[in-house]
Design a binder for these strands. Structure first.
Lengths: 337, 337
DNA sequence: TTGTAATATGGAACCGGTTCCATTTGCAGA
DNA sequence: TCTGCAAATGGAACCGGTTCCATATTACAA
């Protein structure tokens, strides 16, 4: 393989000049540049990226740490990441986390500047020890889909669940529904997950904005899961004036609502509209109307943020909130007259 | 960051000795080794992999070229690959190919020893120019799921899609079906994937072997995907004499067929049997009868082969053929009388 | 005690880039 | 033609490892 010295010799110039040509420095005479380009062409030269990295003191590599990367949502985020990386001079290496041991090993390894230039963490809450390690190593890091409160001044890309809840509810309102139920997780839970709570917040905002009454009997909260949701929905359907539409805080809960509807003899969407949240794979298959996050964009945005960070380590942390979108399928329709 | 010279100085030894300790050379006295290990510990030293690579003249990096890596089958293969790579000293970089331009760019780039030590090609037929380029660069390469005839003496891991297609069809024949439809990818596509074509070949072989008529109106080809498959199946169901069973060339397409069946009011498996191919995760959940390939194992096997190859470039090419199996679930049954 | 072979050790040279400083070249103006 | 400054250029030093050769040390036999 030809080296930069071979090119310099062939072109009859110094190796500094070849480097300048390669890196587009303006301080090269046009005639010289041409001679060097000819040499590169003639020798089929291409610079050795490893040598370049050593010399630059950068790895030109970014790591993505992903738990269970076969999950469709993770894959789609990775696709967004890859699409940006492909256009850049960086390489992407992906770490699939399926055990706590591997998570620890990865987080420990990656907090070293000599390994990678930056780290993307997907859907994986970090403990403070891990965060500290990254900070001490001055390792640029961006969290994607990590909404945990214990991740303060770190750059991250998250979804706005309040807005998503608003949109879901608004979709039902737009269809003409006036009696809209909500089924979600307990309001005060031991776990600091915020998604159901925020979606509920959005639900109430949308109702109020539309001038609709907020009816406590249309709101049920219970342990996350299909069965609980089914029971809660079944109760709601026994009301004298039952809701004509239900917003479930997750697709799994929406499945429970669908089950309850079937058991109550309610046709969907004719007698009852149902909208879920997450767009899990089976939702597509079942035709469940739901709220989808911008998965591809979350990867895209996260990695751009990381690259800016690497470029300028002084850059202040940013928190980007991505919008969600309603995916209309076959479980929502205007209410029967 | 500490370097090997810092460690040498701290331990009061030469840098050669530190290197020997790091690489487990036996020619180091135990007392010296301990001193070096103490220094490494004290300085929190870890060797710079970039410098190591430059010095070794190896990139310690493997590329995987994957068209449409969001497909569940591709992801599962990648998982197999990643699981082996994680245990090795190699890094994996993944190239997602969604356009012919990118395919060309990747194949051109990766045929350079200074970029990577080896290349895995997944489900992507190579033209002879690309093959020649890899061979001239002496780049170790292993093909996974590439059954194209134009890939002669290259190492590869394949499935016998013809046999798989035969097995799937035979399963339907064994159940007593006589009118068996097929839905698969376009016969001539920009990407000359062979899997759908070979499965189709197996389908016809099984029909003929059973003495059943091959009916062109029972065969539909269209762009890979659930929606297209749904449309193709819907068309097929309008035939005066519709098939009682359908073999879809992939599970995603089988999902489309199931959807079409539901829309057409056909019960599965009473009115229509459906068999897919791939055994993606959701297939199990939905009870879809399908043909399972050893996807994870194909990645695992392919990357091991590649690593052996890198170890010993003289190694003769090998072709591993992985078995497939029909997984009978709830979407196939004998035809109604 | 000494000689010698085996083993342990130090460090220069190297991998192939980038960077920066010293030197050369080019060109305008006197 | 000469001067002086800016632009162009050459190449040593460096990045942080590995390797290998020359030298130092050790261990054992005579």
């Amino acid at each position: 393989m030809a080296t930069i010295r071979d090119v310099a010799k062939w072109a009859g110039v110094g190796l500094g000049t070849v480097s300048r040509v390669l890196n587009g420095s303006p301080h090269v005479r046009e005639a010289t540049r041409q001679r060097v380009l000819d040499a590169i062409e003639a020798l089929n030269y291409s610079p050795n990226p490893i040598a370049r990295r050593l010399s630059l003191g950068k790895t030109l590599t970014i790591a993505a740490v992903v738990p269970f990367f076969t999950r469709p949502s993770a894959v789609e985020r990775l696709r967004g990441i890859e699409s940006v990386i492909a256009e850049s001079e960086y390489d992407l290496i992906v770490f699939n986390i399926e055990t706590p041991e591997r998570r620890e090993a990865c987080l420990r390894n990656l907090a070293r500047r000599e390994r990678v230039d930056g780290v993307l963490i997907l859907s994986l809450p970090l403990d403070s020890a891990a965060i500290l390690r990254f900070q001490r190593a001055q390792m640029p890091i961006v969290l994607i889909d990590v909404n945990h409160p214990s991740t303060p001044e770190l750059s991250r890309v998250v979804v706005d669940d309040v807005a998503g809840g608003r949109m879901a509810t608004q979709h039902l309102i737009d269809l003409g529904h006036q009696r809209i139920g909500f089924i979600g997780d307990p309001v005060n839970d031991a776990f600091p997950f915020t998604s159901s709570r925020d979606r509920y917040k959005g639900y109430r905002q949308a109702l109020r904005a539309a001038g609709l009454k907020v009816r406590p009997e249309f709101e049920r909260h219970g342990e996350h899961g299909r069965d609980t949701a089914r029971e809660l929905a079944a109760e709601m359907f026994t009301l004298d004036e039952r809701p004509t539409a239900v917003f479930a805080a997750s697709d799994m809960q929406a499945l429970g609502v669908l089950e309850a509807a079937r058991e109550a003899g309610l046709r969907v969407p004719e007698d009852l509209s149902v909208i879920g949240y997450d767009d899990i794979e089976i939702a597509k298959y079942l035709g469940l109307t739901t709220v989808r996050q911008l998965l591809f964009e979350s990867g895209d945005c996260g990695v751009r943020l990381l690259l800016e960070y690497i470029e300028d380590p002084e850059k202040a942390p940013e928190c980007h909130t991505l919008p969600s979108e309603v995916v209309v399928r076959r479980t929502t329709a205007p209410p029967a007259r």
